[in-house]
């Protein structure tokens, strides 16, 4: 079976799995990183949102074979390691605003939020209502209002 090497949460991993298996299943079923959740498998619900080289992406829609050896994947499990604290400021904002209900969507929501803040910052501007309206992540528990509050708050702390 083909071998694939890439970086996950700061560690180099090598997996034996067919090229076209989507990365979500390599993370969850092979590497047992279960933070990224399955909600659709077709890049719609965004529950699996993680980062590749610091940008948000959806591993349910990426073949493991398409990752390069130096590609750096960060899942929710590795987010806090990107800062010097137990929790990333966005995670802390989530706790402070008591956002999660069932919690199933929240790893993806947080990863999307962090990437959004980085993106608008790179564009040299602040987060707008339109940015928040454009977040596609589903929350079937309807925590959207607290998500919006936590993102604005977390952005200030980032």
């Amino acid at each position: 079976m083909p071998q694939h090497t890439f970086l996950v949460n700061g560690e180099r991993v090598t997996v034996d799995v067919a090229d076209d298996v989507r990365l979500l299943w390599v993370l969850r079923d092979v590497l047992r990183l279960t933070g990224p959740k399955y909600g659709c498998g077709i890049n719609v619900c965004k529950a699996c949102t993680s980062h590749v080289n610091g940008k948000a992406f959806n591993p349910c829609s990426v073949r493991v074979g398409d990752l390069a050896p130096d590609d750096e994947v960060t899942t929710i499990e590795g987010l806090a390691d990107t800062v010097d604290a137990d929790l990333h400021p966005m995670q802390q904002a989530w706790v402070d605003h008591d956002v999660a209900q069932c919690g199933y969507c929240q790893p993806g929501q947080i990863m999307a939020a962090v990437a959004l803040v980085r993106r608008v910052r790179a564009e040299g501007r602040a987060i707008t209502d339109a940015d928040l309206d454009g977040i596609r992540n589903i929350c079937r528990c309807g925590t959207y209002t607290r998500i919006r509050e936590a993102i604005r708050d977390g952005a200030e702390r980032m």
């Binding site: 890049n43 992406f57 829609s61």
Partner: peptide
């Protein structure tokens, strides 16, 4: 399979 073209 095109997830890498939609990073943001």
């Amino acid at each position: 399979t095109d997830g890498l073209s939609y990073t943001s």
